[in-house]
Design a protein around this nucleic acid. Structure first.
Lengths: 191, 191
DNA sequence: TCGCCTCGGCTAATCAAATTAGCTTTTCAG
DNA sequence: CTGAAAAGCTAATTTGATTAGCCGAGGCGA
């Protein structure tokens, strides 16, 4: 029997496909084993177990997001960049809803994960910095923007928005609120 | 052998305690059975299965949230109400992080669930309406506020905020951005 | 009060998935 | 060419969900 030629990365590849196709509940070692043409226990040669695999998967997803978000934002500034950031974030989340779900509540201690998360967050910093914010306000603004967009996506994917009102319009509204809020002068900073 | 005197409600009671204490992963029928002094299969006399139980639990949690949020907001208006709404939402989520997590991605078709969700959303409507918004803008604004606050809470609970910057201050910042954004006149509505 | 029927609980059994143990066979460095 | 580590495998265990089918408790009408 020839070897399957697996590797931690290959396992994560397969896991990602299964996550996209069957969701978080469908992401089982059994399913991954079948998909890679290997017996379930063999996966342990590449990955410590399911929790570890989920962690690796989250890292992969976040890194890919960072790449994608970074490339979309690049070459833009100010409102244009913010708009692109928000839109692309939402687009990604709706294209890969299960990735977003897996990622959303991820909270790992591990440094590799932290590094990936930092890359992603840095895109937001780049965008928000373009609004002339600095210091603490910059941090607050980044957190606010990320909170708003991730929250919107979660609600949109969950049951969130039942009213017949157009969701795109709501997103545009939120974008305007954020854009307006990020102007350094009037609103924030002074309570 | 005396009866345990269970009921669907009692099962949900026990489930809620276990959820709070051990988190979503710890929420197993086995654990609930032990906690209620009954054998696991007996639970099926009250609940269709784990998925059903989770649904009932989500309904319970959302209804309780609606009660609590409603009572906190009552008697307040405008910025004061918004502030109270946001603060209480965040407080609840941090007091019961696992409830928030269970609830966040809940998406059930069932009408009872929809009713509970509507009660909760209505609190937000009450708050936002105080800013003089109507029609579509009202819906957009409610969605924006809910997105922002749930997103903030999720990020805060996940790994979200690693920077040393004070999280309370960030939340206050977000609150200001929202309050400013809800003024009907300038910002939104016209793109 | 008595007898019956339903309901709530139980035990036994099945199934699925994770995980562990221990064996075998590639593979590839030397 | 050889030996050890790596990568698979099968067998076995564990845990939890769920199903099947049995049985007593107890409330209620006659």
């Amino acid at each position: 029997m020839p070897r399957a030629g697996l590797s931690p990365d290959a396992v994560v590849d397969a896991a990602l496909e299964i996550l996209d196709a069957r969701g978080s509940d469908g992401l089982t070692l059994k399913a991954i084993a079948d998909a890679t043409g290997v017996a379930a226990p063999s996966l342990y040669k590449h990955v410590r177990g399911l929790p570890e695999l989920r962690r690796l998967l989250a890292i992969r997803i976040i890194n890919e997001m960072a790449d994608q978000m970074g490339s979309v934002v690049m070459g833009r500034a100010g409102n244009d960049a913010l708009e692109a950031y928000l839109t692309e974030y939402r687009r990604l989340a709706s294209q890969y809803p299960h990735r977003h779900a897996l990622t959303e509540r991820a909270s790992y201690d591990d440094p590799t994960f932290a590094a990936a998360a930092e890359r992603l967050v840095n895109v937001a910093y780049a965008v928000v910095r373009g609004f002339g914010l600095e210091g603490e306000d910059l941090v607050h603004a980044v957190r606010s923007v990320r909170a708003a967009v991730t929250g919107f996506v979660s609600l949109e994917q969950g049951l969130g928005y039942r009213a017949p009102t157009d969701t795109d319009a709501s997103f545009a509204y939120l974008s305007r609120v954020l854009a307006a809020g990020l102007r350094p002068s009037p609103t924030p900073s002074t309570a």
